[in-house]
């Protein structure tokens, strides 16, 4: 009906990112094998004696980083290690930190990778979540399916969203705690089953292998612990599907990777601004917000809108019918501002 330029651009970028992140390993395979210098920083390897258990065979779901990725770096967004051929990048930041907590890697080796992550977050904040995250793109297909079926979306109160965020902290904390615990030499025998605890329950574990038509770890019921993780993963996948089907991006409040990105959301390069005198309080920004944030509507003063929940989809800027009321800025320079659709 109306020209939705930002949505069109975003969908294009999302699909490009999905293809690149999932099939990048195939596309750039030749280049990778010829030039090992493709990496921005030296890849971190597991120290001797830590990953020696039989569980980590090639092809196993716990094979670190799958096959060879093109770049052994960790960008923001859910760039999954379960991608076929490793995808374009190695894994997400939660994987990176969990892995290195277990390996007890020295901080100076982590620093370049963390700096890259923080720099990208500093530039774009949580924009990665909506524009690049491949799992989010998959979820958006579910949302599109719901719209086609004429089913209204569910709205969630602020308390529920805050609850999800607390849940996200719990998941992240538990995951890092377990990772650090099994890094203690005395407990190394637990590594074969408890390695990367979040990755084992992440919905991407079950979704990403589908893209590569490879044997996924869907039915990993060998021992009690793997059975527990597999069942948990299926449960989480169920929540993921339900969340994206009915709640648009409500899942992103629970995602630990998004949580880590959101720490850099305030003061990020991309920011939304509101000129409240131009606002007529129609509430369309809240109606259109996939994260269900109401702060843009409630804001009664001029200035930057930075919420840790905001994923910079710019949908509010696009839908706002008041000329110049909302705008997206990149380091103070206006990129796009709201206006009446032609």
């Amino acid at each position: 009906m109306n020209k939705r330029r930002i949505t069109f651009l975003r969908r294009t970028v999302q699909i490009l990112c999905l293809v690149m992140l999932v099939y990048g390993g195939y596309i750039f395979k030749v280049k990778h094998h010829t030039t090992q210098q493709a990496n921005l920083f030296p890849a971190l390897k597991a120290p001797e004696g830590y990953i020696s258990t039989t569980k980590f065979d090639r092809g196993s779901i716990l094979w670190p980083s799958g096959d060879n990725p093109v770049l052994e770096n960790y960008p923001p967004g859910l760039v999954c290690r379960f991608n076929p051929r490793g995808g374009l990048f190695k894994a997400c930041i939660v994987h990176f930190i969990s892995e290195n907590l277990t390996w007890r890697t020295s901080f100076k080796y982590l620093l370049p990778h963390l700096t890259l992550f923080m720099l990208l977050c500093f530039l774009f904040g949580r924009l990665w979540c909506r524009w690049a995250c491949p799992i989010g793109t998959v979820g958006d297909f579910l949302t599109m399916l719901r719209k086609k079926m004429n089913i209204p979306s569910r709205k969630f109160p602020a308390g529920f969203r805050n609850g999800l965020r607390s849940g996200s902290y719990c998941i992240l904390g538990t995951s890092f705690f377990i990772s650090a615990l099994i890094g203690v030499p005395h407990l190394a025998r637990f590594q074969c089953y408890w390695f990367l605890p979040y990755c084992q329950i992440c919905p991407a574990r079950l979704i990403c292998p589908i893209f590569g038509l490879i044997k996924p770890g869907w039915k990993d019921f060998e021992t009690a612990i793997t059975t527990m993780f597999t069942i948990l993963a299926w449960l989480v996948l169920g929540i993921f599907v339900a969340a994206f089907y009915w709640g648009r991006r409500i899942w992103c409040h629970l995602c630990p990777v998004g949580l880590m990105n959101s720490w850099f959301n305030r003061g990020a390069g991309v920011e939304l601004k509101k000129i409240s005198v131009k606002c007529n309080k129609c509430g369309l920004c809240t109606e259109a917000c996939p994260m269900g944030l109401t702060e843009m509507f409630e804001k009664k003063t001029d200035g930057v809108f930075n919420q840790s929940g905001c994923i910079m989809c710019l949908r509010c800027v696009e839908i706002c019918p008041r000329d110049g009321c909302l705008s997206a800025n990149f380091f103070g320079r206006k990129i796009v501002e709201s206006r009446l659709k032609k």
């Binding site: 719209k147 209204p152 979306s153 007529n280 129609c282 109606e287 259109a288 839908i319 019918p321």
Partner: peptide, 27 residues
């Protein structure tokens, strides 16, 4: 002055958009 801006083209979405045109911005 204010248009109907539809976020989701489901029936519920359209009706919500109408209420956001007619009631919410009422002066």
């Amino acid at each position: 002055y204010d248009p109907v801006e539809i976020d989701e083209e489901t029936e519920s979405g359209i009706i919500r958009a109408l209420s956001l045109k007619y009631v919410a911005p009422s002066i």
